[in-house]
Design a binder for these strands. Sequence first.
DNA 1: TACCCGTGGTA
DNA 2: TTACCAAGGGT
Length: 361
Amino acid sequence: MEFVQQLLEWYGKNARELPWRSDTSAYKTWISEIMLQQTQVEMVIPYFNRWMDQFPDIYALASADEQAVLSAWEGLGYYSRARNLHRAAQYVVQTFGGQLPRSSELLKSLPGIGDYTAGAIASIAFGEDVPAVDGNVRRVLARYFDVSLPARSHAGAQELWRLAEAHLPPGRAGDYNQALMELGALICRPKNPLCSTCPIAEGCRAYLFDLQALRPVTTRGKKTPHLTVTAAVIRRGDQVLLAQRPPDALLGSLWEFPGGTLEESDADLSACLQREIQEELGVAINVGQAFGRYRHAYSHFKITLHAFLCSLSPGVEPQPLEGQNLAWVKIETLPDYPMGKVDRQIARRLIGEDDNEALPG
DNA sequence: TACCCGTGGTA
DNA sequence: TTACCAAGGGT
C-alpha cells in the first residue's frame, strides 16, 4: 500500500498524547480543530483544557455570553473563530438538537468550518472517508510527490486534495489525516526537515532530488506596513473609558482604549489623539503624560502605539458617534473585558501589574 | 481572487 | 529587523 502503511505504522508509535486525542467526541474534536487553525499545538493545549472546564459541552457554549467566550479565547488570536464557534453552537442546538452534523458536506454549512476542518471532524470524530488537507499535509504531499504547482493556487490545492484522496485507506481516514499532519509537524518540517528519520523518505521525490527546501512552492508575500497609532487612557475618578470594536473588524467585539492612526495632517501624536477622539466620541480631550510605547505585529501590518493619560473637562460626556458601545470601567474590573494584546498590556499597567511592559520613550 | 484576520516562535 | 510559518476561513 505504498507509503501509507509505513506512515500509519509510524503514527501508531509516535503520535503525541494530546488532550483532544484521548476522547474524539465530536464536540472536543470540533473545538480543538478550530483552535488549531493557524495556531501551534503547544499554544492550544492550555486554552483547550480551560475551555473544556468552562464550556464542557455544546449546550454550555451555546448558552454562554459572547463576552465570556471571547475572554476564554483572549490571546489565541483570530477572534472570528470564537465568534463563529459561539454562533455555530447556537445554530446546532436550535437546528440539529445539539448534535453536530456527521458528514463533511453538512459540517461546511457551519460558520468557521471550511474544507479542511470539515474533513478533519468528519474523519476523526465520525469515521468518514474524507481527506483533510492543511499546511502540514500540503507540505508532506508536495514533497513526497514533488508537486511543482504553487500549493496555495487553485490548481495546486486541487492537485493536493486529489493526491490525499487517492491514497486514503478506507476505514482509516482519521488516522491517515492525523498521521500526515503529525509527520509534517514533527519530521517533515518547513525548515530543516528530519529526512534521516522520516519513515517515508525512501519514496519521497523531493528527498531523492534534494528539493525539500523548494517544496511546497510558495509565492512571495507583500511587505507589511508599519503604522504609528495613539490610544487615550481617559480617566475619571477610579474609572477609565473603554470602547468596543465593531464585530467584523480587526479584534472584533473586543474592548480597547480609544484612539487611532497617525495621519500626515497630524502635527504630532497629541493632535492625532485629539482628532481621533473628536471623530469617534465627539469631545475634546486633554492629553496628559505619555503612558508607554508599545510595538506589536498583527496579521498583515505592524504598529507602534503611543498611549497617553487623558482627561475630559467637567461636564463633558463622550458620545458613541460610530455606534460603538462605550463603558466607564473601574480599574480593578478591567480583567473582565476581553482585549487584544496591546490594550491588555496597557490595562495591566493601569492595574499596577507588569510595570515595565512598555518600551522606553 | 487576493486580501483580511492575531499571536508567538524561529532563522 | 524582517520575513516566514503555524491542524484556515470568510469574502
